[in-house]
Design a protein around this nucleic acid. Structure first.
Lengths: 129, 129
DNA sequence: TCGTAATGGCTACAGATGTAATCGAAGAAG
DNA sequence: CTTCTTCGATTACATCTGTAGCCATTACGA
């Protein structure tokens, strides 16, 4: 029997995601360090970053380890788990779960670089083996 | 000089999107008809659907034409414009604008069907010409 | 003509999100 | 020991989102 306490992972908002990116990049970090890193992109106050960190911990997307009197934050979920879930959501919602139309769409919008094409070709070949 | 009054398109929420799908499918429709169609999926009241329609009109994502006493609703933006923008947002946010990692991600999650692979192969060949 | 059902518009309200100030405990500095 | 500085925790608050009720008007049937 699996643990009954599974708790589907709660949704991570866009602002929270920016914080997660920092943690995935390098961790563990203190709140201040996270703030320094994230504020290169978004101009947030330390208070804001701390709120986002708390929410991420509450959602069990990040975890803390005590370090003296403060906390060190680390991701508690894999980046690929997140990006995978989000990608899937989009494909399901917009394209009925089919990936091909998504790529057609990106192609149309000229959002596919030469490198993308090459990589995808290679990957396709790989999958086809 | 381009018209200065461009107004970047406002974001369409998930619930609103469900309504847009109905309109893209068939239009123009009355609010009641939209409700009938959309309620096959989500169990909403007519009031809810009317609110969503109003918000879509406010966001200029849908338009109304008077039909006697009531309104007929139609999409005011193309479905491809919406899906394109959303896809791009996702790719930018999660994969730094690169489509290949998204593809890899979906492959990993086994979210690619045989059909998808075939279509994408064809698409790639086309793009490569 | 008078009531009634349909229709669009306005109002409501709880929960999520973005953004932040403030408070209280605990070290650091003097 | 007192004060100042740091943190995390708590509280705040406006906006957006999901979901819906109520109201005024009007077309339509009795």
């Amino acid at each position: 029997m699996a643990l009954p306490k599974d708790e589907k992972p709660e949704r991570i908002s866009e602002a929270e995601h920016a914080v997660m990116e920092v943690l995935w990049e390098r961790s563990p970090l203190t709140a201040t360090e996270v703030c320094d890193a994230v504020c290169e992109q978004r101009d947030w106050s330390l208070a804001t970053v701390k709120t986002l960190l708390s929410r991420l911990v509450a959602k069990q997307a990040a975890a803390t380890t005590p370090d003296g009197r403060r906390f060190l934050y680390s991701p508690a979920i894999e980046r690929t788990a997140y990006t995978g879930a989000e990608s899937r959501r989009l494909v399901d919602r917009l394209f009925g779960g089919r990936a091909a139309p998504l790529f057609a769409q990106l192609a149309e919008a000229e959002a596919l670089s030469e490198d993308d094409l090459a990589e995808m070709e290679a990957l396709l070949k790989e999958l086809r083996k």
